[in-house]
Design a protein around this nucleic acid. Structure first.
Lengths: 153, 153
DNA sequence: TGGGATTATTTGGGCGTCAATGGGTATATG
DNA sequence: CATATACCCATTGACGCCCAAATAATCCCA
């Protein structure tokens, strides 16, 4: 499965290492599975991550915004300049930079949430609350979520 | 037959394994019959499942949403982080995650209900009650059911 | 068409492998 | 030289794989 799916709760050890869930490792391109990128989410107090290949896709997204708009600069700056690359060790662990941990309020444990082509890292409680909130918002529009899940091609 | 049809009642063993009904296994695409996805039903306290192929469809659809919108995050979170992928072993068994078992009230036995392009997993009694209820609702509209079944194109 | 034989499916359990975690030590980097 | 990080090895528990028994479904022939 080449998508980031499900949620996982892992611990940060004394050295600051945390395991990237095995299924997430497998979702990374086979060519480069020991390097990921991390950045602050612009929409929530979470960290977003993905394989380095995804960078091009992000660039494309931003490029689709109006070049002369304020948004363009803002997204461009807050995403690209903040991106951090991290190495995943032989056991599948990596270090979350202090700044990002602070941003997300993460201390000894972190929750990984699959988001398809990328994933989010949350302080566990906040992450759970966020999924509840999302779901609540969507259930108000039950029809649209059902369509998303059950529609046939 | 590549559709999930009829109903089956299987047991969960000490290790938490349960057999995916043989006919359901055969309804999965021949290319990937050892991995399925599970998620909480939006409409009922049951688990819904299907092959991973559908997940890729869903991913595509979400990907077409405006990346910077709130909807994007809501869908992405509610779907990708709530969906669970499970492996089906050589004997056709798989594990139902604890969280989903709780959601559906399943303990030692589960009922599988074919729903065409997907299937539902119920606590047996609740599942039976649900089919009765929905049949009863349908019969109240006998006329429309007859039309549905007998109308020719 | 009944009923035993054959095959398929479900269920049970042993055991090896892998993922998550912990910690020692070498190596790099400033 | 001190701190940070990568590599190596070990432990634990969960899960996948294998083999086998029990149950259900199907077949086939008298």
């Amino acid at each position: 499965m080449d998508l980031f799916v499900s949620k996982y709760f892992n611990k940060i050890d004394k050295k600051g290492r945390i395991s990237l869930p095995s299924s997430f490792r497998n979702a990374l391109p086979k060519t480069n599975r020991n390097e990921i990128i991390l950045y602050k989410s612009i929409k929530s107090s979470s960290i977003e991550g993905c394989g380095v290949g995804r960078l091009k896709e992000i660039a494309k997204r931003i490029n689709n915004l109006d070049f002369f708009s304020e948004d363009y600069d803002d997204f461009s700056t807050s995403i690209f300049s903040e991106i951090i690359t991290t190495n995943v060790d032989k056991e599948g662990r990596f270090l979350i930079p202090e700044e990002l941990k602070l941003y997300a309020g993460i201390k000894t444990e972190a929750a990984f949430f699959g988001q398809g082509h990328f994933f989010q890292i949350w302080e566990p409680k906040q992450g759970l609350k966020n999924t509840e909130d999302s779901r609540r918002r969507l259930l108000k529009e039950k029809k649209s979520l059902r369509m998303m899940l059950t529609q046939q091609k």
